[in-house]
Write a protein that binds this DNA or RNA. Structure first.
Lengths: 230, 230
DNA sequence: TACAAAATGGGGTCATCACCCCATTTCCGC
DNA sequence: GCGGAAATGGGGTGATGACCCCATTTTGTA
């Protein structure tokens, strides 16, 4: 967890005095809508933002951010080719001054925690009116992180997954990845019996009793990289 | 499968000569964007469409359609409270003259088939530019069904699930629902051995070898009602 | 340093699953 | 009505999973 409260979304350049932004979402209609409203003068700030590039998958996002080092990256984390929290970590490495704001319809508690720990400065839900995002963006661009109330509520009742130890989490993700105890044991360089122990222990903690229940849980928590929805 | 090619999207009333439409999507930004562009005169037709109501969940959709009996219903099928194909069937019953067009980011082949069989007159992907939808809407409103090329491709390589028999499909959905062979046997009023037979047979047909693989398949195909994404 | 939690791994048991064999019956289409 | 696919269900086997018991070691933290 990095404590970057008060972080400055400096970015690399501000073309013509306007702050730059990369918009990433796998849905064209959402991208278009965001671009329209972000670049409109007087909406976010008096000049409007400069949308330097759009991206519709994870690879394109990384490429765009590397190229432009924008002040702001607005992205949905459920995208093809590279999704989830890893992308944010990559972005922090390649362009640490870019301020990353997540705008998503996903509600898996496990993933949400990851986003914050990896350095997302803003968290907004697509279920909320866009105004929520627009209202808070100026503040975020000044360096104050913000999380939408909807997500704050989800984060408060903290995920049952926090009760798991590191080893148990690794085991969980391999189990839902379809690996047998023996395969997991090889991958972790430990005995199958230890894997069995981790497995029994985590199922006990989560009060689950079969692989199917385990996967249902993993889907809710966002542990599984599932085919995209909505 | 109903052959309603050439169906007329009459609806109930055309307020002020404009065709009426209900817009349903769980994401506010998408709703707003659609409403803006649909009601704009000269875009779909010269008068623009009359957006009579918006809905953000399955119940609201049904209520809105019952109330307005619009010419057109534009909806995303992955919504809270009531999702998927059942909603379309309900709508056909309550307002048979409403023309239902699905606009979604979902790509599960199994569900797509259901949508068409249940009477969707249009199928568009959120990954495509909105223009695709706008261009084809007038035609659909005249009564000619249309499916976006992206989905046509998905539908052509028809789902492996079509190789399954009725009993095997029932078994499949119960297995991924977390039921044991014994429980399934009780539910179906047959012997556990027969369930075992169905199970073995369907896994053979789908070339799967574990419950986890089975669930991964079910997710791809849209058999499982998964937590909403994107 | 001392203590607790985590991680390691061995023993066993029982249920379930994946897959093979086999047979009978039921039902739909030609 | 005949044939074939589907559905039914019984026997069996080996593998795996879900738990129980137990112990040792490692690690982090008070």
């Amino acid at each position: 967890m990095n404590n970057n409260v008060g972080w400055n979304c400096r970015g690399d350049k501000e073309e013509g005095g306007r702050k730059t932004v990369v918009v990433a979402d796998d849905h064209a209609i959402v991208r278009q809508s965001l671009v329209d409203v972000l670049s409109e003068p007087g909406r976010i700030n008096k000049e409007g933002l400069q949308v330097v590039e759009q991206a519709e998958d994870g690879f394109a996002v990384l490429a765009a951010v590397k190229r432009h080092k924008p002040n702001l990256l607005l992205l949905d984390i459920t995208m093809p080719l590279a999704s989830g929290a890893e992308i944010i970590k990559d972005i922090q490495r390649w362009s640490p001054d870019t301020c990353t704001v997540v705008f998503t319809g996903m509600e898996a508690t496990g993933l949400l925690w990851g986003l914050i720990e990896d350095g997302a400065q803003g968290l907004f839900s697509k279920a909320d009116p866009v105004e929520e995002l627009l209202d808070k963006l100026p503040m975020i661009l000044e360096g104050t992180p913000y999380i939408a109330p909807r997500f704050q509520a989800l984060l408060h009742k903290k995920s049952a997954i926090t009760a798991l130890t590191a080893r148990e989490r690794q085991t969980l993700s391999m189990v839902v990845g379809g690996m047998s105890n023996r395969e997991i044991a090889e991958a972790m360089n430990i005995s199958p019996k230890t894997v069995d122990k981790h497995r029994t222990s985590l199922m006990n903690k989560l009060n689950l009793h079969s692989v199917v229940e385990l996967i249902a849980f993993a889907l809710r928590e966002g542990i599984i990289d599932q085919p995209h929805g909505s």
